[in-house]
Amino acid sequence: MRTSVNRLIGVIFGAVYVVVGLLGFIVTSGVGFIATSGGMLLGIFEVNPLHNVAHILIGGALLVAGLAGVRPAKAVNTTVGAAYLLLGIAGFFLVGTAANVLALNSADHILHLASALLLIGVGVGADRTADSRRALA
């Protein structure tokens, strides 16, 4: 794992997202599962229970892939990054509507876009030598 940026990022991001998802339940007691507004995590990120579950599942996928190997880490980092890119963009249009089932706010959009850029960049750009060596073998 020390030589793979994808594995390292997957494990770190995965662990952080799982912890964030679990902490989110502390601020969402009494909030409806798919409420369009929710509790404030760290005072800036709006979350509801569905949002917390999503963080735990996404974090778990990143964590497991990061621990499994370079190829799964690259695949999951890129896939999660692409999903976060779409969510980050779409989120701006969802706020204030009934479709905002994750209780997103502007801080969430910025975090999702930043996560997307890093995950896609690492997933696509890092650990290329490991892939090319494997393709030649």
Rank of each mutant, 00 (worst) to 15 (best):
F13Q: 11
A82Q: 11
F33H: 04
L62R: 02
V53C: 13
V16Y: 04
L118E: 12
M1F: 13
G81V: 02
L57E: 02
A99N: 12
F45D: 01
A15C: 06
T3E: 07
G66M: 12
G24T: 06
N48H: 10
L136I: 13
G14Y: 01
Y17W: 06
A126M: 10
L117G: 13
A114F: 15
A130T: 07
V11M: 15
G21I: 09
L86R: 07
S106D: 11
P49Y: 06
G43H: 11
G88P: 02
G21Y: 05
H109E: 12
N48Q: 09
V70R: 02
G38V: 06
L102I: 04
A99Q: 08
M1T: 03
H51D: 07
L23S: 05
L87R: 06
L87N: 09
L22D: 10
I56H: 07
I34K: 10
F93W: 12
A73C: 08
V5M: 11
G81K: 05
V122C: 03
R133M: 03
A54V: 13
P49A: 06
S132A: 15
Y17R: 01
F33S: 08
N6Y: 12
V18I: 02
V70S: 08
V70N: 06
A126D: 15
E46I: 05
V95Q: 14
G123P: 05
A65K: 02
A137Y: 11
V16M: 11
T3H: 08
I89Y: 07
A90V: 13
P72C: 13
I26K: 07
V80D: 00
R71W: 15
D127W: 04
L85K: 09
I12G: 10
V70H: 05
G91K: 00
M40V: 08
G91F: 06
V19M: 15
R133E: 02
T97S: 14
L85P: 10
G38T: 07
V64H: 00
A137H: 14
A130K: 05
L67F: 14
N105H: 07
A98I: 10
L42N: 02
A114M: 12
V19G: 12
A35W: 00
G59Q: 00
A130L: 01
L62K: 04
D131P: 13
A15W: 07
E46W: 03
L8V: 14
L102F: 05
I120H: 12
L8T: 14
H55P: 03
G60H: 05
G39W: 05
I44S: 11
P49N: 04
F92A: 12
I120G: 08
S4V: 04
G30C: 11
N48Y: 03
H55T: 05
V80T: 00
V31T: 09
